[in-house]
Nucleic acid binder design. Structure first.
Lengths: 333, 333
DNA sequence: GAATTGAATCGAAGCGCTTCGAACGTGGTT
DNA sequence: AACCACGTTCGAAGCGCTTCGATTCAATTC
């Protein structure tokens, strides 16, 4: 193993000079810098992370708590992970993989052992049991998702309430008077997944305000469940003409089932949804949708964490405003 | 931060004694051990990972290279990740998340810097460009998947060739004389995904040996692609009566489309597939299938890596034998 | 009773790096 | 000519841990 000492010797300078060339924390003459960099390449030097962490009190690692068993939405979780890793690497940070399933305390463990400098937590729920523990973690923590009680914690999330409102408005403005929300399976609501509840609240607030007829349906994945759900949604008594779907897993089967029933989107039924853009684009019928900006949310989480590494910064909640893309799946009536 | 020194002082022993209590590498009297452990709890001591790594030359971290942008199969990738993290934690190891997309060299970087003691690489392809680089990594490396040229490398994978053979046999033994394989989209074969090619080879070997009529179809996800593919598969000239599906994403639409065409499984068409057990169980028609033993493969990868940490061990290829579960989706004819 | 053993513990030398204060020129000020 | 300031560089003191003799002491052996 090549050490900084050998590099120093090879370049004819002291260890500290090499260190300063690497960190840029003190000015070094061009000539010396060149020589040192040359030696580093020639010898194939790689700084030892442990030694660095020990001396500098910084591991250059962020811990990421990922829900690995989550029943659904793996692809979208991966988008988050992917953007978080990429942004962290931009800051020359690595990512330590912690699992939600391993329980709380994982975050505390890696911080207490100085394995990581900060923590990002994904898939945070309304009454997430991890939240209290996270408050006690002695390092910057950023949550992806917003628990009900987020006092003293930094969070990033999509503004689901506004998204709910916006989708309801979108239909209302096109003259729909009776609309339905197809949401996640009951388990998601029971678990108190905060985003589902917030979207629902926004949706209901808006429909109430506008005096629309609104029904809400919890729907599991699977073709039979979807078909059953549609029976309910489309019951003649309701006169439903617009559909808000907040359940990615259901979109494919739903559109198929509508086709099977010879119902055209948007002629017979307007549909708007919340899902990643490329999903909305690649459905049998492209859907007007609000995007889940996984990339941006991940990037912001990393930015927030990095900003809090050096200085003491107040906790902050950042709600990304929803962005609606019209793909023509909603019609006026 | 509580250090080992403070623990030692609190317990009235030397630092080394505390260290030996923790590592168990030398015998310590019951009495002393008790006192030290008590002090550790009282003071809330957590060993500093960097210092430990520096002194012991072991980071207790394994690097895991994950394909984060992979077009498909995120859920199954997560299963692998999940089992790898869990098994690594069993060995008191943490997992550093590296992405396939960040390029090769990531593995080398973390090893050279002593950020990790070993590397596990997922989603290895036939002619994986990472393979040559991995040979030069100065640490144990285990591949999940088997590149064509795996000399000098340790690999774990399902025996896809046998799986292909086995599925063909299964249908042949039930009297099917003309069968079809529905595989992954062309991109997967072009990319040279090793498992797809191996399954195909096994399938073709077996059908040839048995003198069956066999057709092979590459099929993209999406309902239209599936429908089109079925037109081809079920063309009357072929007389296809049995279907082998090696493309998880296609299963749902496929079964739906068959239902739409009023074809009953297994009465009109026998179907057998390779996918995780719970997927096979939860389809509209439960399918007879060969399982993708993600848990086991992940666990074995970790075992292999751990076994190679201390001693020098020869590279090894381990192919898990396929396990077929009959769910009644294939009939005799 | 001296010598031998082995269990239990201690002390100190690193592991490879960062960082702080000091030192050394050099050039510009007074 | 003495002084200061500044840009560069060096030396050394840690950072918190592991590990390798060395030491101690009691139990055993001859």
């Amino acid at each position: 193993m090549i050490t900084i000492k050998e590099v120093a010797h090879h370049a004819g300078v002291s260890m500290s000079t090499v260190s300063y060339v690497l960190s840029g924390k003190r000015s070094i003459s061009e000539e010396t810098k060149r020589r040192v960099e040359q030696s580093i390449v020639t010898l194939g030097y790689h700084p030892n992370a442990g030694a660095r962490a020990l001396a500098s009190n910084r591991s250059r690692v962020v811990g990421l708590v990922v829900p690995l068993h989550s029943d659904q939405n793996m692809p979208i979780i991966m988008r988050f992970v992917s953007s978080i890793v990429a942004r962290a690497r931009d800051h020359d940070y690595d990512v330590l993989l912690l699992t939600k399933e391993a329980g709380p305390g994982e975050a505390h463990r890696v911080i207490a052992r100085s394995m990581a400098d900060a923590i990002v937590v994904m898939d945070v729920e309304s009454a997430d049991p991890r939240v209290p523990e996270l408050r006690d973690v002695d390092a910057p923590v950023v949550l992806l998702g917003m628990p009900d009680d987020h006092e003293g914690l930094s969070c990033v999330d999509l503004d689901f309430a506004t998204a709910g409102r916006q989708m309801a408005s979108h239909l209302a403005e096109r003259g729909h008077r009776s609309i339905a929300l197809i949401g996640s399976p009951p388990s998601v609501y029971q678990r108190g997944t905060s985003y589902a509840a917030r979207l629902l609240a926004g949706f209901q607030g808006e429909t109430t305000k506008r005096g629309l007829l609104a029904s809400v349906h919890s729907c599991a994945a699977g073709f039979d469940a979807v078909s059953e759900c549609l029976d309910d949604v489309l019951h003649p008594d309701r006169g439903t003409t617009g559909l808000v779907v907040h359940n990615e897993a259901v979109l494919g089967p739903l559109l198929l089932e509508l086709r099977r029933r010879l119902l055209d989107v948007p002629r017979d039924l307007s549909v708007i949804t919340l899902c990643p853009d490329d999903v909305a684009e690649n459905l049998p019928v492209p859907l007007t949708s609000i995007a889940v900006p996984a990339q941006e949310l991940g990037a912001i989480a990393v930015e927030m964490v990095m900003a809090r590494l050096g200085r003491e910064l107040a906790p902050e909640v950042r709600l990304l405003q929803p962005l609606l893309t019209d793909r023509g799946s909603t019609a006026a009536r």
